[in-house]
């Protein structure tokens, strides 16, 4: 795949607080890339630098190998879907979508054709004459996407576009966005703080915190092999345990030695181990190394969230089976369920 956008050592400071501390990132053609992180991590600033609304203090921004930091936003071949849609209230749906083409002085018939095709793509056929301020949140979002895509940008930038929608609509729009991205075949750069959204839509997830990139990888990599404690905690629930890496494929914690699949650490190096709650099985007492007492059980819909107290710590387990509180149980997991991370 071709590199489309390159960020090289980008830094940015607002009012004495450094929001980006040297961002290095390559974005490929046709990639669905998500910048994921808590609020204030610098993800939106990164997007705004790519869009051209902010300029970095230092570092390079390359598009197709050419430096574009000084190119104003209206000359960049990117379009943005804004957080609160930013639809023009004085224009109807059709004129909102047609805005970019009108600026380029496109032929009226061509505009009509393109706008109608785009409204069809986002499921708003026949909505052209409607007043944008009277549309629902989901419909406004679709107009915003159509308005950006109709210009056939090389890259679509999306700044938390589903943030204002309710849970059900969000799910629908996630699937739809992914479908649209495959259909139009362009690069999407998506900013969100919702880990589930990031995992379900992206080809590549970039986890950010405090103005730094924590990990870049596919959704499965990020989930299964978090590189540090922050990523493990931010992406889903996890049990994080201090441990010692005795040697390759053997790790010690809670007083026992466990087989694992991780290699490349120093002997007796202090590490942290992540075990996802759904990877732990509750078994009969005596059938596993770790033993404890069921402290609480909470019904979560699809699964139960069970806390089991051992002599060393409390483990969180997700399972579809029910266990009485107070029951003495064993906790079992396989070598591939243990993910070893470097300690910060």
């Amino acid at each position: 795949m071709n590199k489309l956008i390159e960020l090289k050592n980008i830094t940015k400071t607002f009012d004495d607080s450094q929001v980006l501390k040297g961002i290095n990132l390559d974005i490929n053609e046709n990639e669905f890339l998500t910048l994921l992180g808590p609020s204030g991590c610098g993800k939106t600033t990164t997007l705004r630098i790519i869009a051209g609304f902010e300029e970095q203090d230092k570092g390079e921004l390359l598009f197709n190998g050419i430096e574009i930091s000084k190119v104003p936003p209206y000359k960049r071949e990117f379009n943005t879907v804004f957080q609160k849609y930013a639809l023009f209230p004085h224009l109807n749906v059709f004129d909102n979508v047609a805005f970019g083409l009108t600026i380029k002085k496109t032929d009226k018939n061509v505009i009509k054709q393109k706008v109608e095709r785009m409204l069809k793509l986002v499921g708003l056929e026949g909505f052209g004459q409607r007043d944008v301020t009277l549309l629902s949140g989901g419909q406004q979002q679709r107009v915003a996407i159509a308005r950006a895509l109709v210009n056939e940008p090389k890259v679509l930038l999306l700044d938390e576009p589903l943030g204002a929608l309710d849970a059900k609509l969000r799910k629908e729009m996630q699937a739809e966005l992914k479908k649209i991205q495959i259909e139009v075949g362009i690069t999407f750069i998506y900013v969100t703080h919702d880990q589930e959204e990031a995992l379900s839509m992206s080809d590549t997830v970039v986890v950010m915190n405090n103005g730094e990139i924590q990990q870049i990888g596919t959704p499965t990599d990020i989930y299964n092999e978090p590189e540090n404690r922050f990523v493990a905690e931010f992406i889903g629930e996890s049990n994080i345990i201090d441990a010692i890496m005795l040697k390759d494929c053997l790790v010690q914690f809670d007083g026992f030695d466990f087989e694992c699949v991780d290699k490349g650490f120093k002997e007796n190096e202090e590490v942290e181990v992540v075990i996802r709650p759904e990877d732990i099985d509750i078994v009969k007492k005596g059938n596993a190394k770790l033993e404890g007492v069921v402290k609480s059980i909470v019904f979560k819909g699809v699964h139960y969230e069970i806390l089991v107290e051992t002599s060393e710590r409390t483990y969180m387990i997700h399972t579809t089976d029910y266990f009485e509180t107070g029951l003495e149980v064993g906790l079992s997991f396989g070598p591939e369920d243990i993910h070893v991370m470097y300690k910060d």
Binding site: Y74, F78, N79, F82, Q83, A86, F99, G100, I103
Partner: peptide, 17 residues
């Protein structure tokens, strides 16, 4: 809303437009 002005730039309109 300042984001409307940004949206206009984003869609290719220069400052005069």
């Amino acid at each position: 809303d300042k984001s409307l002005i940004e949206a206009s730039y984003d869609l290719g309109a220069n400052p005069v437009q």
